[in-house]
Design a binder for these strands. Sequence first.
DNA 1: CTATGGACCTGAATGC
DNA 2: TGCATTCAGGTCCATA
Length: 275
Amino acid sequence: MPELPEVEVTRRSVVKNITGARIESLRLGKPLRWPLGIDPLELAGQTVLGVRRRGKYLLVDLDDGLLLLHLGMSGSLAFWPTRTNPPPPPGPHDHFDLWTDRGLLRLHDPRRFGAAVWARHEQDPVAEKLLGHLGVEPLGPDFKPDAFHAGLKTRSAPIKQVLLAGELVVGVGNIYASETLFLAGIRPSTRAQKISRPRADRLFAAIIQVLNLAVEQGGSTLRNFSNAQGEAGHFQVHAHVYGRAGEPCRVCATPIRWLLQGQRSSYFCPKCQKP
DNA sequence: CTATGGACCTGAATGC
DNA sequence: TGCATTCAGGTCCATA
């Protein structure tokens, strides 16, 4: 479910509830992708200073250290203010329940590809391992067309896989990779280094446009997504190509094609998108 | 260093 | 209806 827009929407709905909250206890369910790295008892008494996002990671800043949360493929966060809306008991897929004096922050993740990891600082080796190699934030001030094009020039892999790798720019997942490449008129199989400056600029603009729109619309990754209040995304962004193999292109009516790249599905219009 | 495939895990959808 | 197979929004890691 979660690509950058969903994670950002989650962050926004969580941050206002939990900033300033005092941690009372932590209940863990089944193991997530990595061990937490701290005794849950040591978190009690700490205050949540804020929630930031880096790529698809959420960084929950505490008095002493931070929690790195990742939603993996199937994760979602929910917050229950204790008074107004008491939380149900944990279900079989609720693997991380952070109780605070303002309510419960719960990570629900059926597939358990997600993570909750504690790090002393952002420079802690544990955090560095997860965040250190990440590329620039596409919605931040450091995402610039010059550097983006220069980065593409250094990669011989297909552009779709360069986007997914997140080393040049973070946050573009499997759905939005296909969608941004459609808007830019570039086939997923095109080698990154072969993309001309004008086409790199189109892709650059498409990434910002698509991700921004999706954030504005409440994290509309085309399927079931709800924010931490349980409000559904708006689903107004309908896919141009993703998941539409065989169906007519919305622009030119040519059948959309499917392609497997690095074990992931890609979709493109053979007429609108050039090699 | 890059490129590739495998691994992690569960549930929903599809096919016989 | 039942059971097997396929696929799913991520990303780290071992291997070549």
